[in-house]
């Protein structure tokens, strides 16, 4: 999996430039991370744009997939935000598909997981929170900050409640980005560690009859973990999307 890395479970997260590019004193090289962002973009576009190009009333496979994704995100959004939440539909849909495709493509051997870079998940989370704040303030003005003032709380308790609400609001982008990042990072490290065990037991310095005998065990675990990681990849994309909906709902309906 990791070229030349052997059993180094961290090697898979290394970013290597493919095309050097320096702009404004910043290193904006086209890296392996960039490459997989482009792959994600290509895969999602292939499903959604090419898949819907037939415009058939009776859909084919790819169009069914595209429609399933569309309806899944749309029903999730209306479930959380109601009908008027659908004005954010393209944003949440793009976010969900980007994260989902990154997570799933990252599971391919030799690939790079874009969402295992904290800067990527943090940027996406900050984007969500920026939209929540900007839309909330533009749409509701100061009323948006009523979000931090829960109703029906006695006066002496209010400062504490406002503090707690503010902290919980500020921790949202942190938890949103760390959840996705942590899940992807930990899952891939675990996979690589178990894969590394197999390599170490069969080709390592201490390799012998006994290590050959127990080598299938970590292999089986790696297989089971791969299945679990597929689940985690889909689940985390869903969690990211639904939390985005919950936060956007606050901007849409700030009243408690």
């Amino acid at each position: 999996m990791a070229a030349g890395g052997g059993i180094d479970p961290i090697h898979q997260f290394h970013i290597a430039p493919i095309v050097e590019l320096k702009l404004f004193g910043l290193d904006l090289s086209f890296t392996n991370s960039t490459l997989w962002m482009v792959v994600v973009l290509a895969v999602v576009s292939a499903i959604m744009v090419y898949g819907s190009s037939q415009r058939s009333v009776v859909p084919g496979r790819l169009q069914s997939l595209a429609e399933m994704a569309y309806e899944f995100v749309a029903s999730t959004m209306t479930g959380v935000m109601g009908k008027d939440g659908l004005k954010f539909f393209p944003f949440v849909f793009s976010l969900f598909m980007f994260v989902l495709a990154s997570n799933l493509l990252g599971l391919l051997p030799g690939s790079f997981t874009v969402t295992s870079q904290i800067i990527v998940t943090a940027a996406l989370a900050l984007l969500v929170i920026s939209i929540v704040v900007i839309y909330g303030v533009v749409k509701h003005g100061t009323h948006f900050f009523g979000l931090f003032v829960p109703s029906g709380v006695p006066g002496w308790l209010l400062p504490f409640m406002v503090l707690i609400e503010a902290v919980s609001f500020l921790s949202r982008p942190v938890s949103l980005s760390l959840r996705l990042f942590g899940n992807m990072l930990a899952g891939h490290i675990a996979l690589k560690v178990f894969g590394g065990f197999v390599v170490a037991l069969t080709t390592g310095a201490a390799a012998g009859l006994f290590t050959y005998a127990i080598a299938p065990l970590p292999l089986l675990l790696a297989v089971a973990l791969t299945a679990l990681e597929v689940l985690v990849a889909v689940l985390q994309a869903y969690v990211f999307a639904i939390l985005t909906c919950v936060y956007l709902n606050d901007a849409l309906h700030p009243g408690h």
Partner: peptide
């Protein structure tokens, strides 16, 4: 690698958003 990641993420996500909102989802 933050700058490179952010730069290309902004580009790819913007393109994805544009493709989804202008082409795929309305269609």
């Amino acid at each position: 690698h933050f700058a490179s990641n952010l730069f290309w993420l902004a580009i790819t996500f913007a393109v994805l958003y544009w493709l989804m909102s202008k082409v795929a989802l309305p269609r």
